[in-house]
């Protein structure tokens, strides 16, 4: 064997090198799989579970994290089955309840159509995806921060919560963090779901020739986040394009 593996993703056959993960194979084919704790430059971890796909068929079909699962000969993979979508939505709902002020997570919620958060919001701002730990260890070779504790007590910190000698204050951890990366004002309580940014209808273009909320808090003026009225939509549709 020349180390190539054939598998079927969403009905399409694809050949990949041995050692390729399902995530890489699916993305190669152009399928969009949401991820959070995955980063190309770091080892895959499988903590956020967002990248789950359904493998196998019938009663034996199960969900696995595609970022860590190696391609197998003849494997049947479905990246967007009903089970997968249902699970992804719940996972994002859980994430929102931990860190509603993360634009990254809010955007994921919008994409997946998550419209409610039925859990008490904790505002913890860390979803323990471990990107910072892996960044520090693998890219920066410092190993200054790591996981301590277990279960609900698990958190990321320096040894003994004290200033670490190994830390070179490179800022890599802050850079890579999906919660810190893009912060936003977040929604008003109690819904914890915003959906503003991805549901922008650039109605202000008419008046300002610009999307005014480019880098600032989106939706502050209130125009965009209202659903575009039908008449406006109709007017836009029938306007002659220049």
């Amino acid at each position: 064997m020349n180390g190539m593996i054939t598998l079927r993703i969403n009905g399409l056959d694809v050949q990949v090198e041995e050692g390729t993960t399902l995530l890489e194979a699916a993305r190669f084919l152009g399928f969009k799989i949401p991820t959070l704790c995955y980063h190309e430059g770091l080892s895959p971890y499988g903590a956020c579970r967002l990248c789950i796909v359904e493998i196998g068929e019938g009663k034996r079909a199960r969900l696995v994290s595609s970022c860590t699962y190696p391609a197998e000969e003849g494997l049947v993979v479905r990246t967007h089955s009903e089970r997968v979508i249902r699970a992804r939505k719940m996972l994002v709902e859980l994430m929102l309840s931990i860190a509603p002020n993360s634009k990254t997570i809010q955007d994921l919620a919008s994409e997946l159509g998550v419209q409610q958060v039925r859990f008490e919001v904790r505002n913890e701002e860390c979803i323990l995806c471990g990107l910072c730990v892996r960044m520090c260890a693998e890219q920066m070779d410092a190993r200054a921060i790591g996981f301590v504790g277990r279960g609900q007590e698990r958190r990321i910190t320096t040894p003994f919560d004290m200033k670490s000698e190994a830390c070179r204050t490179c800022g890599g951890c802050i850079y890579i963090c999906p919660v810190c990366q893009l912060r936003c004002q977040g929604p008003e309580a109690p819904s914890a779901v915003c959906g503003s940014c991805l549901q922008l209808e650039p109605t202000c273009l008419e008046a300002y020739d610009d999307l005014m909320c480019y880098m600032g808090p989106a939706g502050v003026c209130g125009t965009c986040i209202r659903p575009v009225p039908d008449e406006l939509r109709e007017r836009e549709r029938t306007k002659v394009k220049v």
Partner: peptide, 12 residues
């Protein structure tokens, strides 16, 4: 061992 890893193991 890195102290970070040791702390992770001990607190686990």
């Amino acid at each position: 061992l890195s102290l970070t890893e040791l702390c992770g193991t001990v607190t686990f």
